Simulated assay, not measured.
Amino acid sequence: MRVRTAAVLLALAACSSASVVPAAARTASGGTVFSHVVVDGGKDVVFGPATRRTVTIAWTAQDPDGVAASWAYLWHGPDTDDADGILPLYPPAGTCAAVSADRTTVTCTVAFVVDAARDLRHDALAGTWKVLASAQDDGDDWTETDVVATARLQRAAGVTVNASPEPVRKGRTLAVTGRLTRADWERGGRGGYAGQPVRLQFRAKGGSAYTTLKTVRSLSGGALKTTVAARTDGWFRFLFPGTATTGPATAAGDFVDVR
Rank of each mutant, 00 (worst) to 15 (best):
L12W: 12
L12D: 13
A13W: 09
A23L: 07
T27N: 07
T32N: 09
V33P: 02
S35E: 07
H36K: 11
D40N: 15
K43T: 08
D44I: 00
P49A: 11
T51E: 08
Q62M: 12
D63N: 15
Y73D: 01
D81A: 12
A83V: 00
A83E: 04
G85N: 04
P88A: 10
L89G: 07
A93K: 12
A93R: 11
T95H: 10
A97T: 13
A98K: 13
V99D: 14
A101N: 07
T104W: 03
T107I: 05
A117V: 12
A117D: 11
A117E: 13
R121G: 13
G127D: 01
T128V: 10
Q136F: 15
W142E: 10
E144A: 09
D146Q: 06
T150P: 01
T150Y: 01
T150F: 07
Q154V: 09
A156P: 03
A156M: 10
A163G: 08
S164Y: 11
P165V: 02
E166N: 15
R172E: 15
T173Y: 04
T173K: 11
A175M: 11
V176M: 00
T177K: 08
T177W: 04
G178T: 05
G178I: 02
R179F: 02
E186A: 14
G192C: 11
Y193E: 13
A194T: 13
G195C: 03
V198T: 03
R203P: 10
K205P: 03
T212Q: 09
T215C: 01
V216R: 12
S218Y: 06
T226Y: 03
G234C: 10
F236D: 08
F236K: 07
F236T: 09
R237I: 14
L239S: 14
G242R: 05
T245L: 08
G247L: 04
A249V: 06
G253T: 02
F255A: 09
